[in-house]
Amino acid sequence: MATVASPPLAELIRDGRWLAHRYDEAGDAIQFRLVDRERHRAATFLIDAELDDLPMVAAPRADCLAQAKALQPPSPRFIFHSAYCCSTLLARAFDIPGTAMGFKEPLILNDIVGLQLRGGDPRQVAAALDAALWLLARPLNGAEVSVIKPSNVFNPLLPLVLGLRPDVRILLLHAPLEPFLASIARKEIEGRAWVRELMWKLIRLGQVNRFGLSEEDLYRQTDLQAAATGWLAQQALFEDIAAAHPQTVRTVDSEALMANPATAVAELGRHFALDVDAAAIAAGPAFTRHSKDGSSYSAAERSAEADRGIEVHKREVGIVTEWSRRLADHLGISLNLPRPLLT
């Protein structure tokens, strides 16, 4: 791990390249990594595995918060998502020098979720999140705006984000149910293990309580049923948030996004109050290269891959999709979110 002499804290906070990377709950401190635009672009996610060679310094959370508040950075924008729905692609689309930078799953937000999962003091959770929101809002360069895409495990903290920043502008992004299930199925054991881990976290964070399912019910679920239950839990949260915050929250699904990228980016730019060249972005690398490996990847290829996933796992996906629709009807969860970005 690279270390450097710490610059004066006020200087560090003014330099947006010093990413607020981790929250040290034991020391109540913020760890920063020096991440320039090229490393932001190169990183799939802002995690240790991709940044641990970069210089790191740490400072007390309270001191960092005071300096960030004095700086008064522009309000960040958020892309919340329910996974496997082109969220990384959309965050990459907001790498617009002079206007915005997309922050892809900053690890400090996962640290705060971890604190809550371990039963941390709610006051410390809120204080850590407040500091993280101020610090992540700092422009990477000049007057740019931060467009933050948290990991979807952070979704249960969305009400707390809105409690701390009621005027923040948010996009809620999801994949339609059937393509989501097919995506999990074609990822085989890795996808199936991931949805079970997510389900455990959603249960611990109280997101499955409304379903009325016992521990035995949840244990007996197949992998794709667990995937669908997690999808419905996030869908219910998104539906509630969009209905309660019509002025600041919009929604879109991945199929609509990929079918109309220029229109979607233009509408999202308006929602985020950012001046964007939507046509250029839709024709650029965010929409023409794979978000994970950088290879050439078109909307048609993505659609064909999704269709293959559905075809290979057609019977299982069909059974679970029907089961999910019945459960959604019973619980009053809509499969289509309100406040759509595209109409």
Rank of each mutant, 00 (worst) to 15 (best):
A66V: 14
A68N: 05
L71H: 11
Q72K: 15
P74F: 11
F78I: 07
I79E: 07
F80G: 01
S82V: 12
S87Y: 10
L90W: 06
R92M: 08
F94K: 06
G102P: 05
E105N: 09
L107P: 00
I108S: 01
L109V: 12
N110I: 14
D111L: 03
R118F: 12
R118E: 15
G119M: 08
G120T: 11
P122C: 12
Q124C: 09
Q124D: 14
A128S: 15
A131L: 01
L133W: 06
L135C: 04
A137E: 08
L140C: 04
L140R: 08
V145A: 08
S146V: 06
K149L: 08
K149H: 09
P150H: 06
S151R: 05
S151W: 06
V153N: 10
V153T: 12
N155S: 14
G163N: 11
R165C: 11
R165N: 07
R165W: 13
P166W: 05
I170E: 05
I170L: 15
L172V: 07
A175G: 05
A175I: 02
A175M: 13
L177E: 03
E178K: 15
P179N: 10
F180S: 03
L181N: 06
A182P: 02
S183R: 07
S183Q: 11
A185S: 06
